[in-house]
Design a protein around this nucleic acid. Structure first.
Lengths: 175, 175
DNA sequence: CACCTTATTGCAAGCCCCTCGCATCTTCTC
DNA sequence: GAGAAGATGCGAGGGGCTTGCAATAAGGTG
């Protein structure tokens, strides 16, 4: 029976799919990067160059914070410079993520959303209606401690949302 | 500036991407469905038909439990009946999910994994090496209570894994 | 069993979300 | 202002599903 190994082949407890997709996390602890120019300096320190697409992307991230997909960010950037390509935005987001300035989060089955690392937080997302609640890190303190005590596992509550049912959808289901 | 709305357009707190991708959850509370035949009866009760692809898929799920992608399940099924198509497997998984017999989980950026609902559990997955730990529901009791108290939000800890760093990768990073 | 209705399937095409190779620019340095 | 290296546009490609459609097969019915 020529069957490919299950996703947990290497080890019964391993997921073989890509897990992170994120570039290596910040090599250097991030200093005070509070403005577009701070980030551009950081980019240069790491051998990167200051380009207009980089600058425009950073403006989009700084000036209109929120949870935005790469495509939305591309549209914002293209409003200023129509030639900037989606793939360039992806590559720049990747670079910024490597520098620890940007993070992405998965809030559901749709595209990933990107945002500045500063002020990152966890999310509760309703499986039914998509309602999203932002969750301060302290809400995960208990789970964090449990995972650490039980498994030595350090959770990152920002990367994947916690799904479930929001109050409204529960009530709707009952009524 | 003709820019598409951000992913949280409907409402500042809403994620517009597909969230669940799962069919409606079980219409009927699942009775004792402990065997392939139990499930097939359930399928018939709901107007579905008993087909060989259905039966083979269920055997794959029952006989070789674990976390398997649709593609892996297809290979298992094809070992018995080579003509069964990937799309058929997806459609059957969807149907079984609607009946509450099967669930899928996202353990990282790779394909979703499918498994019987019975004995479903949460997961901690290492962003670095993919190590996966299965987490009993009780580990989420605290987070569950917090989310309920604070937001009236009922979490489903099974659907998306909690990512983070496993003990080994933390130690490797330090040493 | 023959017949009919409706569910299911195989196949191919398509879609979404990225990712990559490559030839062509830009930046930055000297 | 030249040269080296990084960045970009463009188009193709890939993984993971999803869908339309015509062909097939289940489960009644008589």
């Amino acid at each position: 029976m020529a069957v490919s190994p299950p996703l947990c082949a290497r080890n019964p407890d391993t997921y073989d799919g890509d897990v992170s997709k994120a570039p290596e996390p910040a090599e250097t602890p991030v200093r005070n990067v509070e403005t577009v120019d701070d980030v551009l300096s950081l980019v240069r320190e790491h051998g990167g160059r200051v380009t207009s697409s980089r600058r425009l992307l950073l403006h989009a991230l700084f000036d209109m914070p929120g949870h935005r997909s790469a495509e939305e960010l591309t549209e914002l950037v293209q409003a200023q410079a129509p030639d900037i390509h989606l793939s360039t935005v992806y590559r720049n987001l990747e670079e910024l993520e490597r520098l620890g300035v940007v993070e992405h989060a998965h809030l559901g089955h749709g595209p990933a959303t990107y945002h500045l690392s500063v002020g990152a937080h966890g999310h509760f997302v309703c499986e039914e209606c998509g309602a999203m609640l932002e969750a301060a890190d302290e809400l995960f303190a208990g789970l964090s401690a449990t995972a650490r005590d039980r498994f030595g596992f350090e959770i990152n509550p920002h990367h994947f949302a916690v799904l479930g049912r929001c109050r409204e959808c529960q009530e709707a289901a009952q009524g």
